[in-house]
Nucleic acid binder design. Structure first.
Lengths: 214, 214, 214, 214
DNA sequence: TATGAATGAGAATTCATTCAT
DNA sequence: TATGAATGAATTCTCATTCAT
């Protein structure tokens, strides 16, 4: 089907076009996965001629990587605003849990994108130097929190920050990313307001129940 | 690619053919997702004429559902062999954690399948009466364990078995299902023998650290 | 899809099976045309294993011819019951018009079958000695009616019975066979009771208005 | 059969491409019916990449409708050139009969297309707003002719223009559209020069013999 | 006479991508 | 920078027909 020509030709704005394409691609990849995403639909969503996508992004895979990098930038950027180093350790853990939970809720596309990338065995991510560098600060920050907590006699010793980070992420990720199958399987609404409060509280209990020693 | 004719004609065995198709489809769907899976490749993997797939399974989606149902049957079936009701509560929790972990490691396709189904918002699963009925026994068993633990003065009160089950699954699921991106991001081997032991021990510590009250 | 096995196996009755197949095929060919007809559906409609169709009728084309021959037998058989030679000429013409009209209404599949056969340039019919032999009596009968009418001073001279027969058939055929397009085009119901009476009366007026000389 | 690449690349002309596709499709649909038509062959006939058909026409059915609409435009357009309002009523009827006859002879595909559309119960036509509007002028013109004829004391009263139009069309349509089966059945050449003259004369006699009152 | 299992060839349609301007 | 036209290679699915019992 010939692309319906826009009433007015798109004003020539390179940045804007690229952003629109990335936004559209994010939605499409999240909704259908890499294999199910359609370049046609991305163009349509973006209000851009299909050919323009290839002008800016070499091909579907490159576009996917660009989307993925931008998504990681997003979450890591916000994470840095948490100031975990400046609050007491227990509060820091609470913040990290809440943040992760809320971020996943606010950005379900991020979960979806990760799913896709894992299905493809991180094929795209492995090509990205950018992403790797984003993560060490996070681990260091968390390590610092754990150490402070231990020194203050609050937390147990010997907790690996990477393990803990993965656990915290996993507790939210599995619940939210798999909520469609889970709510079908358990025949229970997992996303209602009450359910959300309960889950967040369960996760805090679980992690702090483990960490805190009295 | 023209299908290379089998040296010998396939013996006529309806059950065997269906099983072979399901096996092949499981592998293909796990490797490429629903959208990326190719019916051609499934036929080839199964050593079956492509047409036969449509003879037994209406179309790609029905086939996917059949695969999914069989996968759930698999894990739920093994879970029932755990005899959680017959061991002491702490041991029961340990068993469940280990089992989940080991099952995911032994059946990475299962994780992949879940990912795909969630990407599609449980579209297939929702049509399956079968699956729902598989899960209530599991929740009841876990509820029993928690209650026994509490009555014995071991476990804290008020733990929701569904929340706990989701947490236990999520701790393994996220680690294993996202190990490709995670190991890239954290630049660390997550699947070596030592790493596996560490993760399992971390998960046990986490869950039991939370549950057990002294 | 494997054919759902009948609860009880079909009793072995060769004649009955063949008749069922022909009935089913008539419906299917009429509904979808030769190209659109499906052997699967014919088997299903007939309540017969698909393989049995090939046992009795060599292939789709042979089956179509068999259906066609039986359809011609049907109309020619009934036509002979009209006794056109035994009533006065005007009544004979009326009878022929009414009969044609009513037969087409009662057997819309017959029209559809003719359409299909013409689309295929009478490919099947040309192979059938049977059908050819059925038609000469009809022309002779009509020729007799016209001659009697002329001798009685009622009808005009020089009317070609074949032309007239084709005209009479055509007046009903086009109206009924094309009623779907015609009623769409003219935005008018052509099959209501009143419309049917009007058409029949129009056709009688037309043909007799032409034939009868006063 | 791999498409033989055109020696020269096709010049980029959207209108021309669409026209070529429609021409090719008309031939193919007429020759094989909707069900028997092959998109591959249409592409080949049109000298166009198969994909281009889908670029301009959504799918086979849409293409069929487009062809059908163009066919109706063709005949209705020429009909308007007959100037039936400007000649005496008898001549007008003669012109309409001759035109219909000659148009069907010159455009056998038109008959075939109608057949197909009726087999499908005007499924496509019913979606077309366009077609309905083409036909009211025709009916009005014919009504005018009949009225003029009656007022001049030439024609009988009370003739329904739609009935008459259908009859005129039917007399040619059945003869020409079914000539393959008819000539097989009656064992008589229906398309030779002499036969054509005879049929045209028969139709004029029939219709005017009915209409004209002396 | 009757049937469930199996298939090769081909059908419509889709898709990422490139051409020409 | 932007776009409408065009395409080759797949991809899912269909269909008449045959095999084996």
């Amino acid at each position: 089907m010939p692309q319906t020509p826009a009433a007015e030709p798109r004003p020539r704005d390179a940045d804007r076009s690229q952003r629109d394409i990335l936004d559209a691609a994010l939605g499409e990849f999240a909704a259908h996965g890499l294999g199910g995403a359609r370049m046609d639909r991305i163009a349509e969503r973006a209000g851009v001629n299909k050919r323009l996508i290839y002008y800016y992004f070499e091909n579907k895979d490159s576009l996917f990587l660009a989307v993925l990098e931008r998504a990681y930038e997003g979450i890591r950027g916000e994470e840095q605003g948490l100031n975990l180093t400046q609050v007491d350790p227990i509060e820091a853990i609470r913040r990290l849990i809440s943040f992760t939970w809320n971020y996943y809720i606010a950005h379900p596309e991020f979960l979806s994108l990760l799913n896709s990338e894992n299905l493809h065995r991180a094929r795209h991510l492995k090509q990205s130097a950018k992403v790797r560098s984003m993560h060490s600060p996070l681990v260091q920050t968390l390590a610092g929190v754990l150490e402070r907590g231990h020194k203050a006699g609050l937390f147990r010793a010997g907790v690996d920050p990477v393990q803990l980070y993965i656990s915290i992420a996993g507790l939210s990720y599995f619940y939210l990313g798999n909520c469609h199958t889970l709510s079908t399987i358990f025949d229970r609404d997992l996303l209602g307001a009450k359910a959300q409060v309960e889950r967040l509280s369960h996760m805090n209990d679980l992690v702090l129940g483990y960490l805190v020693r009295d």
